[in-house]
Amino acid sequence: MRGLARRLALALAAPLVLLGLWLALALLGWPGPRLVPAPALVASLAAHELTHAALWRDVGATLARVVIGVGVASALGAGLGFALGRSRRWRAASEPSIDFLRSIPPILTFPLFLLGLGYGERARLATVVFGCAGIVLLHVAAGLAAAPRERAEAVRLMGLGRLATARHLELPEALPGLILGVRVALATGLVIVIVTELLIGAPHGLGVRAREAQIAYQPAQLWLVIALSGALGALLSGLLARLGRRLTPWCAAPSSAPPST
């Protein structure tokens, strides 16, 4: 019980300090209400907006774009990363191309996709896939490439077939990297989706709401959008971390027991 209270206190410490700082700045009137609106104003706006469907429609639109985009990127990146991770030669051959592609800011490809795919969701989705597939690819390939040689050799000497080797060795070897890659990709995907929503072509979304709030001089609304974006990212990351712990129980504390077979 005492441990739980201690963990709760630690978890709440940073948000409480930030809230105190925010309150102090608002009371001092510095740097001004356009940048730092009063917490009470943002709280009352949140209480109002959270009960209205319009906000949830925007959250839902952004969430759907992130999940679909990162989902497609993960499938693509995992497949390519798996192929590259298994072959040193392929990895060496593709390294310069991967370095080149991942140096391109993904958002720069959005105008190109708008021209090529039209002013709709496909261009936004393509930008997310372009920005996130490489992240997943690199994590999966790195996970496989970093695996100790002794494990692969032990399985090779057992005479398992290709399919059994993929199932019993390579897939579990790649799984922690895949989960970590998808977590990183989710954060990047959220950034790309919101930036593309800010720019053009979306009827709904947190980015659209932020753009409209900026045009209408509503800093409290902007703070609400910023907080919701952070909460959305943290929620997705937390869910994936939970899923990861379930799928890769061997990565947890060694004292944990394997599932009984």
Partner: peptide, 15 residues
């Protein structure tokens, strides 16, 4: 083969 790096040869995802 039981390799010198025996620990690395075990599959950590299997009991």
């Amino acid at each position: 083969l039981v390799p010198q790096a025996f620990a690395a040869s075990l599959l950590p995802w299997r009991s």
